[in-house]
Structure formats: C-alpha cells, structure tokens
Amino acid sequence: MSESALSTVNRPESPAGDIVEVTLPASSAYLSVLRTATAGLAARLDFTLDEIEDLRIAVDEACAMLLPQAAPDAELVCRFALEDDAIEVTVRAPTTRGVQPERETFSWTVLTALAGEVDAGIDEGLTVWISLHKRRGLPTGAAS
C-alpha cells in the first residue's frame, strides 16, 4: 500500500499471502467492476497481459454462472488469494436453488480452458461457489 505508482520497477514487498475480498450486489451490472479488480490484482502478481486477459474472462464466466440462480438482493463475494506465482479466486453467492454449475455449457468450457484448476460446490444456506486457480507462465489449454 505504500508503493507509489512509479515504484513497480523496484517493488519492495511481494503481495504473496495477501487476501483481497470484494463484495458486490449479485447483479450483472457489476461484472465490469469485478473484471477491473481482477486485472489490477493479477498485474500486482506480474501476470502477463495475456494471462490477465484470461483471468478477466475466467472470473467473469464464474460470476455469470452464479448470477442467474442468486437469491434476490444477494451479495456476490469474490475472494482473491494472492500467491507467489499464482492466484486463487473464489466467487460465492447465496442462491434460491443451490444448483451446481452446469458443465455442458460454453461458460464452463471457457472457464476451465482459461483458468487451469476449477472447482465448484454448495455450502450451507444454498451458497454456491466456484473457485479457480491460475498459475503464471503456463500456457492455457486451448489457446496454444
């Protein structure tokens, strides 16, 4: 937090270990905000521009899968765990039905191709979550 905008050449502290949590209304209107946050955090971990673009899409897809079943007035919580050479992003929202994300969709195909490791589950209170883990410096599945 003490960095100035020009200090990226000689960054004193690594953000590894930091956890960033963003809570937004579970509305598609905020997807662009979340994509921007995602890009900013990935840039702090020195992801390449291509990797940042992959992450923006992956997080967008994960959220877009949750939103249709989100409970009325629900909040979408997006948790970013920053690691040395990777980022783990978990999005969760309370839902009305508690349905696992469908795997036979364009959305899931894009998400898994871009993010590497993807998991999903349902917690108490019909809260559905999707998590993705993306490492730096690895080729994406279908993009070679």
Partner: peptide, 9 residues
C-alpha cells in the same frame, strides 16, 4: 473490448 460466452450465445 470484452467478449465472453454470453456473447457467443
């Protein structure tokens, strides 16, 4: 400037 699976649909 941004394109996802919803756009594909």
């Amino acid at each position: 400037t941004f394109f996802d699976s919803t756009a594909l649909g």
